[in-house]
Simulated scan of single mutants.
Amino acid sequence: MADEEDAPVADRPGPRPVVIGATVVVVLLVGAVLGMFLTSLARGPETSATPAEGSVEVGFAQDMSVHHLQAVTMAGWERDHTSDPQLKQLAFDIESTQREQVGRMKGWLMLWGQPEQATGEYMTWMTADAGHDHMAMAPTSSAGASAGAPMPGMATNAELAKLRSLSGAELDVYFLQLMLRHHQGGTEMAQYAHDHTSVSAVKALTQSILTSQGAEMTVMRNMLTARGAQPLPFP
């Protein structure tokens, strides 16, 4: 986009744009290898079976990867277009953390012999595990999500377009609102997976998500309050 290309490189935190693509590939590969390693360590008598299609573990890894990648996109946009140092740092942290976690989940899927993305509806894994009690969520792609969003907390195409159209304080506030709602949806997914998996590596990652995103939600709420703004409604 023109405004992004014209922005002085010196104003952008992190690596220069010419190496971003290579950096993304390296981070994803490292995350994938780490995911495979942690999963292999987690194998024990109680987790010896490879998670199958439709399981909580596979569904979580597939859907949360999609969910995370939208956060990476929004955070990258904010990082490149805000002039607020606090927002630059927050966006960079979110982008880096969630990109690494995507690499880890894709590593699991590779190890389990499963595709990186499911071909059917999103979120069916939150009701498909017959061995456990379930959340009151219907197996549909729109369950718990805003109209037009594929999963809880995710932004719609119209909301993403609006984010890209804003600048200055308006951009910062809208980013915080969208990302806070995004984290709310992501933590619901992570909590369900944490409560319904017996795979130690999945428990460890979901706990990490709950801890880090919980802290970031507090920061974002405080930032919105300081800017005289309110969070968006969460379905």
Rank of each mutant, 00 (worst) to 15 (best):
E5S: 00
A7I: 04
P8E: 12
A10W: 13
D11G: 13
G14V: 11
P15H: 07
R16G: 12
P17R: 10
V19C: 11
G21W: 08
A22G: 14
A32M: 08
V33M: 09
L34K: 08
M36Q: 11
F37N: 00
F37R: 11
F37I: 10
T39R: 00
R43D: 03
R43S: 09
E46H: 07
A49W: 00
T50Q: 10
A52F: 12
G54K: 05
S55P: 11
V56P: 00
G59P: 00
Q62V: 10
M64K: 04
S65W: 04
V66F: 01
H67T: 13
H68V: 02
H68S: 08
Q70F: 00
T73C: 04
A75F: 01
A75S: 15
A75R: 01
W77F: 15
E78Y: 04
H81P: 08
S83L: 10
A91H: 11
F92W: 14
F92K: 13
I94D: 02
E95Q: 15
E95C: 02
T97H: 05
E100M: 15
E100H: 08
Q101M: 12
G103D: 14
G103S: 10
R104H: 06
M105S: 00
K106T: 15
W112L: 01
Q114H: 06
E116P: 03
Q117E: 14
T127V: 14
T127A: 15
A128V: 02
D129C: 11
H132I: 02
H132D: 08
D133E: 11
D133I: 04
H134F: 04
M135A: 13
A138C: 03
T140D: 14
S142A: 12
G144C: 01
A145T: 02
A145Y: 00
G148E: 07
M151E: 08
P152W: 12
P152L: 13
G153D: 12
N157R: 06
A161M: 10
R164P: 06
L166D: 00
S167T: 12
E170W: 03
E170F: 07
L171E: 00
D172V: 06
F175Q: 04
L176S: 05
Q177Y: 05
M179P: 09
Q184L: 07
M189D: 01
Y192G: 06
S198G: 13
A201N: 09
K203H: 00
K203A: 03
L205F: 10
T206C: 14
T206R: 05
T211V: 14
T211M: 12
S212V: 10
R221H: 13
M223Q: 15
F234Q: 09
